[in-house]
Nucleic acid binder design. Sequence first.
RNA 1: UCCUCGGUAGCUCAGCGGCAGAGCAUGCGACUGUUAAUCGCAUUGUCGCGGGUUCGAAUCCCGCCCGAGGAGCCA
Length: 509
Amino acid sequence: MPASSETTADWTAVENLADRIGERATLKGWCYNKRGSGGIYFLILRDGTGRVQCIVKEDAVDDASWEAADGARQEASLVVEGTVSEDERAPGGVEVQTERVERVSAVKSQYPITPKEHGVEFLQEHRHLWLRSQRQWAAMRVRNAIQQAIHRFFQERGFIQCDAPILTGNAVEGTSTLFELDYFEDDTAYLTQSGQLYGEAMAMAHGKIYTFGPTFRAEKSSTRRHLTEFWMIEPEMAYFDHEMNIELAEDFVAHVVQTVLAECPDELEALERDLSALRQVEAPFPRLSYTEAVELLKSEATSDLLDARLQSLQDEQQRLENERAENEERRPQAPKGEKREIDAREIEINGRLNEIEKELRNLPDWRRSAREFEWGEDFGGSDETVLTWHFDRPVVVDRFPAEIKAFYMKRDPDDDRLALGMDILAPEGYGEIVGGGERATDLGFLKDQIEKHGLPQEVFEWYLDLRRYGSVPHAGFGLGLERTVAWLCGLDHVRETIPFPRTIGRLHP
RNA sequence: UCCUCGGUAGCUCAGCGGCAGAGCAUGCGACUGUUAAUCGCAUUGUCGCGGGUUCGAAUCCCGCCCGAGGAGCCA
């Protein structure tokens, strides 16, 4: 992100230090880590905008400052005053020659999250503290940049932000995945699973709108792609057809990616994101019809791709096992420091081997799912992943069988079995990030569909009114924020893309 | 709901029928430029819970609880 304005006149943000070489500065933050050697301490201070190394020398500060530095444990809150200097030896090239250290508050007991590895369960239980860690910090900053890019993209194109209600009486896709509330006397209320229907109403009022709000799904899904509470952006445009909708979605996704690349280089580096994959994300994207996608999935090319994947996983497995055996032999004679490195490496190797084993177990199922796929089914998670392996950027898949899509989808005029829906699949296995399409406008057709889907027509009367009073062609789509953040950050689980994730088994913290 | 893997020190893990272990963290000591600093010494346990097999169970068997990610469903 670009340097923020000075937060106040009283102190300086770490992210602005590079512009203040040679000047005195006061920093307010927390002790991230500390190294020492005799009469010198290296305090790594973080303040929410970045991290900087502060050099505290015993003979350069007063006794109280030395004591504060000496007693500072991880996450102690500190105010540091000193002169900003450039130094090759400092991480980031800038450091502070400290003249005064003031302890704001001590750490009462040992801070639970060390700079070492931790397990998922432990980190989830300490999410309120985990957020302070470097990678989590970076991911939240990318999330913020994405949110800003989304607003700018739509605002610059004349869209109005119009938010849909969170409490709704409309069950759009059946009630099984909805959270129910019994507060309203005559009716069951639900937490929304999509703002889409309301978006259509608001598009008829403003032309082009987008909603940006939380969404709730009571699915029993416990995977790296699922949250029970997540955020969705849903633009809806009057007088847009299927083709215009796809083009907008492509431009939109490309814009978000390019904006993050331009604005978050430091964050992406902290996340060790491979940027080359993101740089290629420019519109237009490869396009496949559902029928073509099914053919590709069952093709020889997919089978070869899976073979190659299997081979490379097995090779990696062999390499790691060899390395582990070598280390084990070396360990007894190794000096202590090296021993520690070997132990750390072993944990790394075991973790990776675990992942490889998991994927090797899954691959046969994935292969079967791809080979035995029948036209008319919906793609599973693995099918989407396998499809995206064929391309180096997001893929658009459109014209799905109407039966697997929602009741409000317009039919393909060229083939009545198909709906004018489209999905955009993110590369690298991040799954469906966009889903949308052109909406049906024919009143009779919609009434028919509502009945066929077993939905109660009374609660959709207001929606049908949109077709009774000046109905026009219109289209829209939804983008899942967390999956987009996960993709751009290269995170392997959506739970790290939102400050306090709500998953199937987790309500706290 | 089903399938697979896991639960051992504050944390990350090894041990997989025979004395409960390592690294980190923590405490004390050494070191004036460290980069997850290093070096020396020290402290640390309901081996998830319940039952069974056995001379002997962290280890084998059965049941349960909790976690992970895959199927289904979905953004």
